[in-house]
Design a protein around this nucleic acid. Structure first.
Lengths: 337, 337
DNA sequence: GCATTTTCCGCAAACGTTTGCCTGTCCTAT
DNA sequence: ATAGGACAGGCAAACGTTTGCGGAAAATGC
């Protein structure tokens, strides 16, 4: 052990040339003669030379690292998104620093801080459900670190984002239920912080309006995404004098919890109560009673798109260009089982 | 934008003192007077000074980053392990670089290479199912980068590892099936590369031996973990003249695929055929027919343990001590539903 | 009041690489 | 013959921080 790794200086010393020549030779700089270029490369190969990236990072003020902040990795939605992000990152010779906020604002802040200290070249984030402000992200502007939000996008201007158009598919989902004869459709929504830009609810409303169905406010309940929160919200719906016959629910995980609970309560799924949901995660294939339909949000594509946007911003940054704020909206798609 | 971030030099210039004094003042070095120390800190706070980590990384030859290489993030087993790893890392002010091999050796190699270039201080890895050799990990010794394997541990000496004792729980699992009256128990194992140290099979054998049950080799089949692979393996079992009445299966994901397939084949789960499995992932709670029992492998604890071991190795490294190879084995536990 | 210790701080090198600028040599065209 | 250009490569600074060493001033001991 304790091997001194070979450096450019070492190569220069052995060849009796200067370090700058070695550096240029290794980079195929035109002003280095073929003879020396060959000699340098040969020796470099023999010594197993590899550039010290930390020195380069330091010198170039770049780390070839992007930070990814998201609520958790448990949900297949996010792990699918990571696949997209990672694939694009690898293409650009970047590597991904991942941090989970576990839906905790303080932890999210700490992660962003830590990533800033590590001088990531850019950040991709999906905010936590307890994120009430995004100062910690806005701070990054002072460090020239671009931030791209995806999926869970804060309701703010002057940000870059990639998200799905959930409005259209929400209209479609609710219309689909209405056409199947449902007249009372509950909406089990997420926590308020994630509803700032509430496309799901807007779509829900719109579908009702289109079909001249009155909207009963008591049919709209919230969960904090925890199992208990979902159960409480579900109870609230079931205690209504006029129960809903179908429920539009925040995402598949919430739906699975709700269905699980409903079955404990001896409700007949798809008879007493139907579910339509968001995310269309693969795990629903294994369950006995999956939601009847789910809105596919193409997490992989969102990840790819967000990362490509981020790289555009990073490039703009290095070329000192002002980048306009981009808010990319991808299509979503109602998948009927 | 385009703000020049404040540096130590800048502070020194403004205060008409030397950079070294500023550096020491910020680190509460004893040989700096209280007066100047205060002045430095005050100005540093005003300027919002933050040390340039890349410079420090470079100088200290440390990056406060650990690399994590694993097959995928989709399986909850791994995302749970990450939670443990991340928690310990954060405590040590470290951050985690994640890469998925997607069970592809070439990609795994590329990831390790990339992490080496990023000069991670250590690597935690769970090998891909196509990893037939571990040269790329052994290379890391040349760079003084310690490697800790967890869960999917290669069968090699001179490595550090954290894993679960699956032998005892495998014996227990099969005995449990035997006691329930099963006489023909299939074993649906993983791909050969993951079976090098085959505790599951050894336990399976031992239980048969203990109960004087003959082992029928045709009851032992393999899947490459893909859905199709699992179906083929399952078919092989079902085409036997004397079918098994129970199956011990590589992990819960394989089991879910198998059960799904068995139901398509109109088999009555828990009547025609029972399943016992490994991992005990939470998602099995949502399915109609989960495995009857599953071996909990405590991924979070494995993650914590692996990371703690890694930090011990990193510390040893900085203090130039030889570290003996540690192979930590945690308990597993058969969970009966 | 002199010698000695303590207190406080600066100098400069170092980490490995990149890059603007300069110098020298040789070739070629006038 | 000389100017001009092309080619090859060296010098030195720079990135921001840390740290061993040394030294001046102040405090202490007698």
């Amino acid at each position: 052990m304790e091997k001194k790794l070979p450096t450019i200086k070492e190569i220069a010393r052995r060849l009796n040339i200067s370090a700058s020549t070695v550096s240029r030779a290794l980079h195929d700089h035109p002003s280095i003669g073929l003879r020396t270029k060959m000699a340098v490369k040969k020796l470099a190969a023999e010594l197993n030379y590899e550039p010290n990236q930390t020195a380069i990072f330091f010198k170039q003020r770049k780390t070839f690292t992007i930070g990814l902040v998201l609520p958790n990795l448990r949900e297949e939605f996010f792990s699918a998104a990571i696949n997209g992000i990672e694939d694009v990152a690898i293409d650009h010779n970047y590597i991904v620093l991942i941090g989970q906020s576990h839906d905790d604002l303080a932890r999210e802040q700490k992660l962003v801080e830590s990533m800033k200290n590590h001088r990531v070249d850019g950040i991709i984030a999906s905010i936590s459900s307890s994120t009430t402000h995004i100062e910690h992200f806005e701070q990054m502007k002072n460090y020239d670190i671009p931030v791209v939000f995806f999926d869970r996008v804060p309701d703010a201007k002057d940000i870059h984002s990639v998200s799905c158009n959930l409005y259209d598919s929400s209209v479609e989902a609710v219309e689909w239920l209405i056409k199947k004869g449902h007249k009372r459709i509950g909406y089990l929504q997420g926590p308020p912080t994630l509803n700032m830009k509430n496309e799901r609810l807007d779509g829900y409303m719109e579908a009702h309006k289109k079909h001249k169905l009155p909207v009963d406010e008591s049919l709209i309940v919230s969960t904090d995404l925890s199992v208990e929160g979902t159960q409480k919200a579900f109870d609230a719906l079931m205690l209504l004098k006029k129960r809903p016959t179908a429920i539009l629910s925040f995402n598949d995980y919430v739906t699975l919890d709700a269905i699980h609970y409903a079955r404990q309560k001896k409700l007949a799924i798809n008879k007493d109560i139907c579910f339509v949901s968001y995310a269309n995660v693969p795990v629903t294939q294994y369950v006995e009673y999956p939601p009847l339909a789910s809105v596919e949000q193409f997490p992989y594509d969102q990840g790819v798109s967000a990362t490509e946007l981020l790289f555009r911003l990073i490039d703009k940054k290095t070329s000192r260009l002002e980048a306009p704020y981009e808010n990319i909206v991808l299509k979503s798609e109602l998948i009927i089982r």
